[in-house]
Every structure is written in C-alpha cells, then in structure tokens.
Design a protein around this nucleic acid. Structure first.
Lengths: 143, 143
DNA sequence: CTAGTTGCAAACATTTTGCCACTAG
DNA sequence: CTAGTGGCAAAATGTTTGCAACTAG
C-alpha cells in the first residue's frame, strides 16, 4: 500500500499534472519521512535541500496533494498548525509523548471494529472514519 | 461528576476569583449546553441572551476556565476553530455527522483499555490520555 | 482599597486569495 | 501554444497581548 515517490508522480502525470521541481521535492520529502509534518517543517526541509520555494506555493502544493488524496491532513490537539502525512501509509494512529513531544505511529490489531459496531447498535450512527490520538510518556522518557 | 453552574462558581469563588456577570453567563452556557462550542458560538449565545461582551474578554475567560480545568479544549479534524466543553462531563468521545455536521457524544463500554494495554506491551508507551473522533452518517441522515 | 476583570486597539500566527508572469509538455 | 504552476503582496481567520480603566468583595 505504501507508495514510492515515482508511483505518485507518474500517477499524477497520467492525470495531466506536471512533474515540477517543487512537486518532486515535496513528494520526495513525504515519502522519505513517515511522520506528520507541518507546512513550516516542510519548508525548512526544502530549504535545507536547496529547494526553497515561496510560502504560498508550498501551501498551494499541499492543497493540491491533499485534494488528490496523496496526503492527509492531521490536527493534533493543542497544536495550532496542521500536519500532513502520506495517505498511502497503512491505517494507523499516533502516540504523542508529552515529555519529548515526539510522535510515533501505532497500528492497532483490529483497530476500533468493536467500538464502531457498538456505536452502530446504540446510536444508529454509521462510522466511516475515525481519528485517534494517544498522549502519554514514551519508552525513552519513562526510564 | 457533572457539575452545576453554582458548584463551579462557588469553587472558583473559594479560590478568590470573582463571580462576575461574564463568568456567570459563560458558565451558565456551558452547563446548559452539552456540546462542544467555539468561541464564536459562545459569543452568539451570549449576545442572544443580552449579555454581549468584548471578543477579547470572552477569549480571556475561556483561557481562564481552561487553565482552572473547568472546560477542556477540543479540536475537530478539518475545523479551524477550537471548541470547548465542560471538563466535568463523563469521559466520552464525539460522533461527527458528515452530512448534517451535528455532533453527538458517545460513551464507550470500556473505552480503549485493550488498545492502551497493547500499546504499552508493544511500544512501552504509557498512555495517559487519548482523544478520539468518529466521522460518519448519523441515524437521521441515514434514512 | 486592590487584586481581579474588562475593553480597545493592535499584534500575531497560520493559511488563503487575486493577479499576473512563467513553463512543462 | 496553453493549461498548469509559481511568486508577490495583501486579505482573511482565529486568537493573543499591552495597557489603561474599572469593579467586586
């Protein structure tokens, strides 16, 4: 399910979108870095790789990739910035360490299947998606 | 566990904080309305009740109540505004209907106990808190 | 009387828009 | 050549701060 930079680019190209320097750079950053990134962090990384682009342009490309389902938007509690990660990653959630602030991914055995069934039973609400964020102390900080 | 307007106010008073018109009005709105409210919605309700206050003041009171643990901040995915709800409500999550946008509360049987245990086992990450949001179609919209 | 509270104006952080120039295919 | 892309300046949105005036207890 996880896609490479090339797969994403050629899929976009086949839809008539261009393979520009910015697009290549941004997709490269996302495919090379699993964790949810903010626009600012993304720009820092681009800058560090000598592929600096205008703020507006970066936001626009993020919007483009979001609209095409290449990346997903995440919003952590108590953070003001939006974050983005590759949509083709396996379905997972995030563990946010309150001490070191680092984020890890977690894949749950059978996710929230039981909970979603009970929600349908008790409320008649048909869940199509969920978002879950755990806060706590990571192994490193616990020592 | 759910506290009344009076309990909250007198608890604040006992800590030396004043019982002002704004404070009474805002706490009244929160205790009378279970669902997560944005600052803007709160101001609308105040205005409708002839207790209009300056935007800054309302934000400041929200900050005050948050700092004292009276209300909690929530941030729904894809919403730009922060929302707030009484902290003394039973631990619950939210069902957000994608069609009518309404929010319902849901209390889960034994919440995410299994998942949190498995996270501790597999990652050594000690979960202290979590936030979970379900998206889907509510009973009303499903007909 | 005085710490706590309020309002105004202005600042702030993040993201979005309008408009026009540019370029990949 | 032309739809798609890029950059600049400015707007929009939601929230916060500085500061001086006001008020509950």
């Amino acid at each position: 399910m996880k896609k490479s930079s090339e797969e994403i680019l050629s899929s976009l190209a086949s839809q008539g979108f261009r393979m520009t320097r910015l697009r290549k750079a941004i997709i490269g950053v996302f495919t090379g870095n699993g964790l949810p990134m903010s626009a600012e962090e993304l720009m820092d990384i681009l800058r560090a790789g000598n592929t600096a682009f205008n703020r507006t342009t970066v936001y626009r490309e993020i919007g483009f990739l979001k609209a095409r389902g290449v990346i997903n938007e995440i919003q952590f509690l108590h953070e003001r910035v939006k974050r983005y990660e590759l949509a083709s990653l396996e379905h997972h959630h995030h563990l946010v360490c309150l001490r070191c602030k680092r984020v890890e991914d977690i894949v749950l055995e059978n996710d929230l299947a039981d909970q979603e069934r009970s929600i349908l039973d008790s409320k008649g609400f048909h869940v199509t998606n969920h978002m879950l964020e755990f806060h706590g102390i990571c192994r490193g900080c616990n020592r």
